[in-house]
Amino acid sequence: MSGYHFRLLFVAGLLSATLGVRLAPAATPQAYDPWPGLVQDIFKNRPMNDGADVIAIEMPYRAEDAAIVPVTLRTKLPPGDSRRVLTITLVIDQNPAPMAAKFELGPDAKVSEISTRVRVNNYTDVHAVAELSDGKLYMTKTYVKASGGCSAPAAKNADEAKSRLGQMRYRQFAGSGHGAVSGTREAQIMIGHPSNSGLQMDQVTQLYIPALFVNELRLWQDDSLVLAMEGGISISEDPNIRFTYVSNGAKRFRAEAKDTDGRVFRREWKIDDSGI
């Protein structure tokens, strides 16, 4: 250190000691927050209202496996509220493709809960944005500690994934307040699909595996829409959607899924009248 700089530091120290002034450390740059840009890109800069009384999002604070992080979206409108939730958009702010999924709720299905599994690439805020029939957007968020989910190797090898491609299963569950009397159903759709993110590397060739994922899913009871999903690379391998809805007395449940290669998968099941 030169004598000039030493004298400057010495004088600064004397001033600090004499006047009781503490020299503030240099300001550190704030961490980049992508949310304002995402509001512009995904929601066209529409105003965001507080969604604490409209929509809830549940995720683990620290994920055990970043490639299969559970997430539950739950509507919170009280029974007397005349508004209806039209769509719920799930945004994982720090993911390479932040819009993980957009769910459209059937007009008569009264979907109240949706659960799935997602990939999380970095420590991030995760937003749930509900669009209501009043034309407004309502937002809530949570924070998740996870990293590397979008580039994590597939859990199944290529041959196994290929053999399961497009296979669909439907399950119904019994639960408190669910059943034939209330008309409420809790069900699950599982789709065999690799859901390649485009960021995963083939361990043999060391080349990136092209993106291939389910980008559309539609579910009906008879011909009435229950739930539709527009998906992205953040949905985990073998997409799994669990949801609660109100039965209209239909005797069959139908599903149609499409992937980014243009494949269409369809399946139909009979519904148990007991709701179980």
Rank of each mutant, 00 (worst) to 15 (best):
A257R: 07
P25Y: 08
F213T: 00
R254D: 12
V144A: 06
F173W: 14
A100L: 02
S115G: 15
R62C: 09
L86W: 04
D125T: 10
F243V: 00
Q40K: 14
Q172N: 12
A155L: 13
Y245A: 06
T89F: 01
D238R: 07
S115E: 15
P210L: 09
Q40R: 15
N157R: 08
F253E: 00
A26W: 11
R169L: 06
K44V: 07
L217H: 11
L225C: 01
G275A: 04
Q221R: 13
L217P: 12
G262T: 09
I114K: 02
N122A: 14
A161F: 03
V214E: 01
G148V: 06
P107W: 10
G51F: 08
Q188D: 08
S82N: 09
A187M: 12
A56K: 04
I233L: 07
F243Y: 15
R171C: 01
L207K: 14
A109G: 08
K251A: 04
G51N: 13
I276S: 12
N157F: 10
A174C: 10
L219E: 07
I189T: 07
L38A: 01
A155R: 12
L132P: 13
F213V: 05
P78Q: 02
D41M: 05
M190Y: 06
V129I: 15
P210R: 07
T116F: 01
D272P: 02
S112T: 15
A27N: 12
E186I: 11
W35L: 06
I191K: 05
A250E: 09
R22I: 13
A255H: 04
